[in-house]
Write a protein that binds this DNA or RNA. Structure first.
Length: 629
DNA sequence: GCGATCAGTT
DNA sequence: CACAACTGATCGC
């Protein structure tokens, strides 16, 4: 749960993900994603009143978030005041104090966060430095290196502060199986059940929250079976999701909900009420997505656990694991880091103690201030923190030698992908042992196995040593390029294989258990290492919102959008009130001056010029599923 | 009656 | 396995 109060030290006149108390006077609002704990105060009468008399105040978010928000009529009063910003499109925003007329410029860029549909991080650039607010995120190791806008040229931007999702920032959450491993485990479990007969039904016991959509779309795609949900109107303009959902209860996969689900389930009844089909009773299993984690040295990562006769838990996480968080932060190496979340059982101090060593200011204090003789330009690592007045006089090349951007344009590696699992390999669906059904992976058999849950996780382990032993590896991440590469810059790039689990090559342990008399499926899931193929590269979850959306450009006079193509030319592009596009040509230098203030120096200018220059990928498509499966 | 907050549940 | 939302009780306006 986010404990972020809404304001960042560097840009206190904007509020993010909080809309109450001191945030009521913000000059601009930002919403990273559509989860309730990030929307506190967003529909309060006090804010509504403020809005009525402060006409220049807007709420900025991704197009998908805007759509999800406005589907809820309680938020419709925002309609004229929301401005959807395209992903990875730097946009200049004027922060105006309506009383004094005082004005400050800031450039914001939305980066996909992989948490739920529409979820983004906000990268702000302005007179008080570059800061990153991550919102909630799940990014695999190495993803930061692939994010174009965290870089200037081939190097990481100089980021002053990161406001970080620290939900799992505790060594006990060292590793969480990758999205793909989890998805594969669930796919196999579902397959083993619904292929038994048309009366075999799977119920996904999901929370009422966005974030499971990629699970639904993958299941639907894999089995040609739409998923039953209570409500789908929020996806009316997202055909790639909508297509895989249904409100027709006659389907084998359900994700419907009911306040008294547990009692329903005990009575062999689905939350939507049905218990039989054509008079034949249904055989229902429940799968409850839950976060599972493993210690640093744990090899076996069972992504499916059996918790009862007809109940399973499946590994599923909206948030990055401890090692993913550290990987992300150690790549960015900001001067400061501020946790947005205090994990249960932890304290702010403890979290900061973990994160500080990954920041530059820490290096300054603890590492020797060795400077090679003859070096004309000092490194940032040594001095930076105190004052940044003059930092820009110095080239920072020295300070970031280990971090190289991984090119975004890469070719997707098909060999590991077997989009459709070979059905012929699963002749005996009735056979309890699904091992025969496993998909081939190139290097390792990817068994999926459940572990009975009689004993709760024995997996947890030696957490005490994890911190120290891990510390040495922090800068080692950029070398995962051998992974697949993709050409399309949007969410799909996250669907490739990431060797995000440290692999020391130990063996899988398959703990099939329980002779079980029922028809319960036998599933294994392991994951020793790299997950492999995913069912498909998949049905475009690139939920582009259909045309009429992504407008909302009413009263955008304060917003300037630097669109992809034009950025190269140093153009300004923005939208006028009628929604039509207006371009205003400026030179790159003019642009820089607009963005940066008096403190700017040549180096900073150079950096930003590079930003503009390198910002040319990612064609202008509308909107995407910013949940990165 | 509405909203904020808290405890409990899933 | 701890995410995120819902429910219900209580308090205040």
């Amino acid at each position: 749960m986010s404990a972020f109060e809404g304001q960042m030290a560097e840009y206190p006149t904007i509020s993010i993900d909080r809309f109450d108390r001191q945030n009521l006077t913000a000059r601009a609002y930002f919403l990273s994603h559509c989860h309730k704990d990030h929307m506190k105060g967003l529909r309060a009468p006090s804010l509504k009143r403020r809005l009525e008399c402060s006409l220049k105040v807007h709420l900025y978010c991704s197009p998908v978030t805007k759509e999800l928000l406005l589907t809820n009529s309680r938020y419709s009063f925002w309609e004229k005041r929301i401005i959807a910003l395209e992903i990875e499109t730097p946009t200049q925003i004027s922060l105006i104090d309506e009383a004094s007329g005082e004005k400050e410029e800031v450039v914001v860029t939305l980066l996909p966060a992989g948490h739920c549909p529409g979820s983004v991080m906000f990268l702000f650039q302005g007179n008080n430095g570059t800061v990153l607010y991550t919102g909630d995120f799940r990014l695999a190791k190495g993803e930061a290196a692939r994010m174009e806008f965290l870089h200037s040229g081939n190097r990481v931007k100089d980021i002053q502060s990161v406001y970080l999702d620290t939900t799992f920032c505790d060594p006990k959450y060292y590793q969480i199986p990758s999205r793909m491993e989890c998805l594969n485990g669930i796919l196999e479990l579902v397959r083993s059940w619904i292929t038994l007969s048309p009366y075999h039904i799977v119920w996904l016991n999901c929370k009422a929250a966005y974030g499971y959509e990629y699970l639904f779309t993958n299941l639907s795609e894999e089995f040609g079976t739409q998923v039953h949900v209570n409500k789908l109107d929020m996806f009316k303009n997202m055909p790639d999701i909508l297509y895989h959902l249904t409100t027709d209860r006659h389907t084998q996969i359900h994700a419907c909900r009911h306040p008294r689900v547990e009692e329903f389930f005990r009575g062999n009844r689905l939350p939507c009420g049905i218990t039989s089909k054509n008079g034949t009773p249904l055989h229902i299993i429940s799968i409850k997505p839950s976060t599972m984690w493993f210690g640093e040295r744990t090899r076996k990562t069972n992504v499916i656990m059996r918790t009862g006769e007809s109940s399973y838990r499946a590994c599923f996480s909206f948030h990055s694991s401890y090692s993913e968080i550290k990987d992300f932060l150690s790549y960015i190496r900001p001067v400061n880091v501020y946790p947005n979340v205090i994990p249960l059982g932890a304290t702010m101090d403890k979290v900061v103690e973990i994160l500080k060593p990954l920041c530059r200011s820490f290096s300054k204090n603890t590492e020797s201030k060795y400077k090679p003789l003859g070096m004309l330009k000092r490194t940032r690592t040594t001095y930076l923190e105190s004052e940044d007045e003059d930092e820009d006089l110095f080239d920072d090349l020295q300070s970031m030698p280990l971090r190289h951007k991984i090119p975004n344009k890469q070719t997707f590696q098909p060999p590991l992908l077997s989009p459709k699992p070979e059905p012929q390999e699963c002749p005996g669906q009735l056979k309890p042992n699904v091992a025969s059904c496993k998909r081939d992976s190139v290097e390792s058999s990817l068994l999926t196995n459940f572990v009975d849950c009689e004993e709760s996780n024995s997996e947890d382990e030696d957490q005490s040593e994890t911190v120290t032993s891990f510390r040495g590896n922090l800068n080692s991440l950029p070398l995962q390029q051998q992974e697949s590469d993709v050409d399309i810059p949007e969410w799909k790039i996250f669907f490739k294989n990431n060797a995000d689990i440290p692999d020391d090559g130990s063996e899988n342990v398959i703990s099939s258990t329980e002779a079980g008399t029922s028809q319960s499926p036998r599933l294994f899931s392991d994951s020793d290492g790299d997950s492999t193929h995913i069912s498909s590269q998949n049905s475009s979850q690139s939920t582009h919102i259909s045309e009429q959306e992504s407008q909302g450009w009413d009263s955008q006079s304060d917003t300037i959008l630097l669109s992809s193509q034009e950025r190269n030319c140093g153009d300004f592009t923005y939208f006028n009130k009628s929604g039509s596009r207006v371009r205003e040509l400026v030179t790159t230098c003019q642009l820089e001056q607009n963005i940066s203030g008096p403190k700017d120096t040549s180096s900073d200018l150079k950096d930003r010029a590079q930003d503009v220059h390198t910002a040319s990928i990612s064609g202008g498509a509308t909107t995407y599923f910013h949940c990165l499966p």
